[in-house]
Design a binder for these strands. Structure first.
Length: 684
DNA sequence: GAAAATAGCTTTTTT
DNA sequence: AGCTATTTTC
């Protein structure tokens, strides 16, 4: 350990060695925050903490995975690694609920509803199809849960909060929504945090049990926590055998860019108030960028009101000036950026993957993609649709969910409709009516005798065959290996034929490929007890806190929390990286091209709609600027096409704030089009 | 009058 | 790229 400590700076060492009480590490961009967390875990173990009692909590699966990999490089003992809890907030909540669900009247086989399921539940409750209304109401219900409001608290909150129609409607259906989820034996993502919170608060014995289990907690990206997550941290971190709660929160208020989805960097401030003995340590040495880049970043962010003052610096010298380009329009901008990347790469013999183009909104990638394709330049588009959002994957998941939990009505509806089984909307409506009357699930309603007089013979026969099949697989899942069942299931639903029937051959082939990939992945996860992956170690403590999913049924629940299929990341680092500013957080690139630095885009402003939070927009720009290691190129367009006509655009106010050496109106020195031709000639 | 083609428009995204 | 509103076409 001491040799490891030698490679760290003083602030990092202080952060690691302070284990006597609550600790807040303000970790600037590129200051080695993951390093601090992983080394601190190693240090805690060295100091006698049992790895079983240490939990590191992240926000994304990706961050959790990275943390696990970094820990595996630091701690050789595989046994120790396995005992650690390294997971997302939601995965921790799921583990908690799986173990303690009996206290909540929830069966262990509860379903986890995705935002789509939530959407359809609200749609049913409102009996409305207005997308805008449903989305707003879903948002407010999520807000209530993050605030830990009961339905009656939500109603009184709505009354004091003025005349927001969506808010009132959301408060009014909140209780119905909760009851609906309960009837489905389902929880939504917010419940994974909120329910453990409520249970711990109301059950002191349980709280002591969990506090003893999680004696030291480390939270990554702490500025992204919402109220509910902070409450959970407080409930778990209080340690009955210690005088003070033991935890380390690592975060950066300057990189808080998720306020719009409930994160509150006020939680940094709250730590100070709630824990008077809080030790605050700032990490200001940056290991990523040159000082020209850091100065621009420091200047920019100094315009925000701040909780913690900090100034990034590095030992990497001044480096190149940050360059600023005023472009004629978006085409000029995109062409110019691609040209400059091509030229730079040609000159410096670098790899395409050293370059990143960052933008505020997804649609801005479209033009870039068009040009990159035209020039046959490899690129990777980050973000986009996740694997689990694809319709074909959701179809398969619907079957799995229904097999797992027959009360899961949204899964029932999806499964019974894809592929169509001769049960039309009229029959389904009758079935739903009956289920409502009898207060049972759609699945159970299929067995009712009354159904026979309600719907036609063919539909009844199909329904009964369908539910019998589901029951059969559920029964078999207890003994038979997952791989056999998955094949049987696919064969029964005849999914491949369905795809080719409903889509163009090319699209169908692609969808089927995704399906088989998913099924194979399930097989590999479900059958063997493979605890060691090709590329990483699975973590989890022996006490069941992080039990490894073994059969098909257990696997089903975990799927809901997963995002991108691991192993699909092979090509992730190939080619020019195109990314939104949000998705770029946590990453770094040799050369960064930040486009669309214009009023209305960055900071974003949607005309008459409530104008965005300028400070958050500034932080977003700050995140983009601090991604760059060697060079940073910012551009803006004087004109942009909107509603078919060109409008004049003002440069972003952030450009002045950065106090760059370059004039904002500086013209691009070259005609990018002719140079592109030249490059092509050179490369051929 | 209904289907098909086309034009226009996107905030940010995780669990 | 994907969704919607509008226009075109038969």
């Amino acid at each position: 350990m001491s040799s490891i400590i030698n490679t760290l700076n003083q602030a990092q060492i202080d952060s690691i060695k302070y284990i006597q009480g609550p600790c807040l590490v303000i970790a600037g961009a590129g200051s080695g925050k993951t390093r601090v967390i992983t080394h601190k875990i190693a240090y805690l173990i060295e100091q006698g903490f049992s790895p079983k009692n240490i939990a590191a909590i992240t926000f994304t699966n990706k961050a959790a995975k990275e943390m696990q990999e970094r820990l595996a490089g630091l701690i050789q003992d595989k046994k120790v690694l396995k005992q650690l809890t390294v997971c997302t907030f939601h995965a921790l909540g799921l583990k908690f609920l799986k173990l303690e669900c009996e206290h909540l009247g929830l069966k262990p086989n509860f379903s986890i509803f995705s935002s789509d399921d939530v959407y359809s539940v609200i749609q049913d409750i409102l009996a409305s199809t207005d997308k805008n209304i449903i989305k707003n109401i879903a948002h407010y219900i999520s807000y209530f849960k993050n605030q830990l409001y009961t339905p009656s608290q939500a109603i009184s909150y709505a009354q004091t909060a003025g005349d927001n129609e969506f808010l009132h409607q959301a408060a009014n259906i909140y209780e119905i929504y909760q009851n609906t989820l309960k009837a489905y034996q389902a929880v939504d993502f917010d419940d994974l945090i909120k329910l453990p919170c409520e249970l711990l608060k109301s059950n002191p014995n349980l709280q002591i049990k969990w506090q003893n289990m999680l004696r030291y907690i480390l939270v990554d990206e702490y500025q992204d926590t919402n109220l509910c997550q902070y409450e959970l941290l407080k409930l778990l971190a209080g340690n009955p055998s210690e005088k003070v709660p033991l935890f380390t929160a690592v975060g950066d208020d300057d990189q808080a860019i998720y306020a719009w989805r409930g994160a509150s960097s006020d939680n940094l401030d709250k730590l100070n108030a709630d824990f008077p003995s809080l030790k605050v340590i700032k990490l200001e040495q940056n290991y990523r960028s040159t000082n020209n880049i850091l100065n621009a970043a420091n200047q920019l962010i100094s315009n925000n009101t701040k909780l913690f003052d900090k100034k990034l610096w590095s030992e990497h010298g001044m480096g190149d000036d940050v360059s600023l380009y005023a472009m004629n329009d978006e085409e000029h901008e995109a062409e110019s950026i691609i040209f400059r990347i091509s030229a730079h790469r040609f000159e410096c013999k670098t790899d395409w993957s050293e370059y990143a183009v960052l933008y505020r909104s997804n649609y801005q990638a479209r033009l870039l993609e068009k040009i990159l394709r035209r020039e046959s330049i490899p690129y990777t588009l980050s973000g986009g649709q996740s694997f689990f959002e694809k319709a074909e994957i959701k179809d398969i998941c619907a079957y799995l969910r229904l097999i797992y939990n027959s009360n899961d009505d949204p899964a029932f509806i999806r499964a019974v409709n894809t592929p169509k089984k001769g049960v039309g909307s009229t029959s389904l409506a009758k079935l739903g009516e009956l289920a409502g009357k009898m207060k049972c699930s759609l699945f159970d309603a299929c067995f009712l005798n009354m159904l026979e007089t309600e719907i036609n013979k063919q539909a009844l026969y199909s329904l009964r065959e369908f539910v019998n099949f589901v029951n059969e697989i559920n029964e078999k899942a207890k003994h038979e290996p997952a791989s056999l069942l998955l094949d049987e299931m696919l064969k029964y639903i005849n999914y491949e034929a369905y795809l080719y029937e409903h889509y163009d051959e090319k699209i169908a082939a692609n969808k089927w490929e995704n399906t088989t990939e998913f099924i194979n992945w399930l097989k590999s996860k479900g059958s063997s007890e493979a605890s060691i992956d090709a590329d990483g170690v699975e973590f989890g403590s022996q006490d069941g806190l992080s039990a490894k999913p073994k059969n098909l049924l257990e696997l089903t629940q975990m799927i809901a929390l997963m995002t991108i299929l691991e192993g699909k990341n092979d090509n992730k680092n190939h080619g020019v990286q195109l990314s939104t500013l949000h998705a770029s957080k946590g990453l770094e690139f040799g050369h960064v091209y930040l486009l669309g630095a214009e009023e209305g885009i960055l900071p974003f402003n949607n005309g008459e709609d409530k104008s965005s939070d300028i400070e958050e927009e500034r932080r977003l720009m700050y995140v983009g600027v601090t991604r760059a290691k060697r060079s940073l190129h910012i551009s803006w367009c004087k004109q942009r096409r909107k509603n078919g006509e060109k409008i004049s655009i003002e440069p972003s106010r952030f450009l002045q704030e950065m106090n760059l050496n370059t004039n904002i109106d500086k013209k691009a020195k070259v005609n990018p089009l002719s140079y592109l031709e030249m490059m092509k000639a050179m490369l051929n």
